[in-house]
Design a protein around this nucleic acid. Structure first.
Lengths: 135, 135
DNA sequence: GCCAAAGATTGGACTTTGTCTAATCCGGGC
DNA sequence: GCCCGGATTAGACAAAGTCCAATCTTTGGC
């Protein structure tokens, strides 16, 4: 599931994000791999060939992508945030031993009995994490 | 919902935890308030009268309590772990504006369609977080 | 294509959360 | 009351993430 330079540019433009070098590199790593990656992993991957993107830019860009709804944060590991290129509603299987994250389709996993929210409150999202481990 | 010194000692002893001064203070803050608290909040609360418990001890103790099943970690805020004195199965409402956490009974909120686990894997827990915000 | 303005990137200092260590300090059993 | 293994401590350390002011790119108007 690889994306061409043009496709990536279109993806960013659609959200009003100026397609710079660094942003395209980061988008490429996220969307072409389709994996859940943490900031430090992205920093490493993006600089694999020749270093060209700084830590600050990786964090800036991930926050920008998140704010624009291009990617989603996954909060499962107390040590770091993971970024998910899949923004469709879905849930996660989290291997606590290896920190590996796998998707669970929202069609399979269904929640019922959502509580009334306090007035003036809206749901931003429902995240389900199934924590698993060996044995 | 206040706990007496004796009740707290019994609570720790039941899990084989030696009831020291500091541990009782921390247990008291958690169980008497019944709130979801982060380590730094616990450190502050415990030292409100006169400082007597160090940061290291707060972290040691929270990890100990967690390992002994006395409390539960709640991973919802990328900035810090919250500790929950309620270890019964239940879920959480998380106010992303205020970082406030509220319980949702597991009787109300039901999940169906749990996926097959890879062989040799066991479920450690299923955490549902309903993220809400004002507006 | 050129230029300026707006916006993006950068290294490095800084903050925060949490861990580690080696020294000291209990407290429960004898 | 004494001892000893476990508990506590200050402070150094580590890792994730933010901030800043200087510099570099993009982009849109011409």
């Amino acid at each position: 599931m690889s994306y061409s330079r043009h496709q990536l540019i279109a993806l960013l433009r659609k959200r009003g994000i100026a397609p710079t070098h660094q942003r395209l590199e980061i988008a490429n790593v996220l969307f072409s791999r389709g994996e859940h990656l943490a900031a430090d992993q992205i920093l490493t991957l993006v600089n694999e060939r020749h270093a060209e993107t700084s830590k600050a830019t990786v964090y800036n860009t991930l926050n920008l992508f998140r704010d624009c709804g291009l990617i989603r944060e996954v909060i499962v590991d107390p040590k770091r945030v993971f970024y998910d290129p899949n923004t469709e509603p879905h849930h996660h299987l989290y291997n606590v031993d290896t920190s590996e994250i796998t998707d669970i389709s929202a069609d399979d996993l269904v929640v019922s009995g959502m509580p009334e929210l306090p007035p003036g409150m809206v749901t931003e999202g429902v995240d389900i994490v199934v924590r698993i481990r060996a044995l």
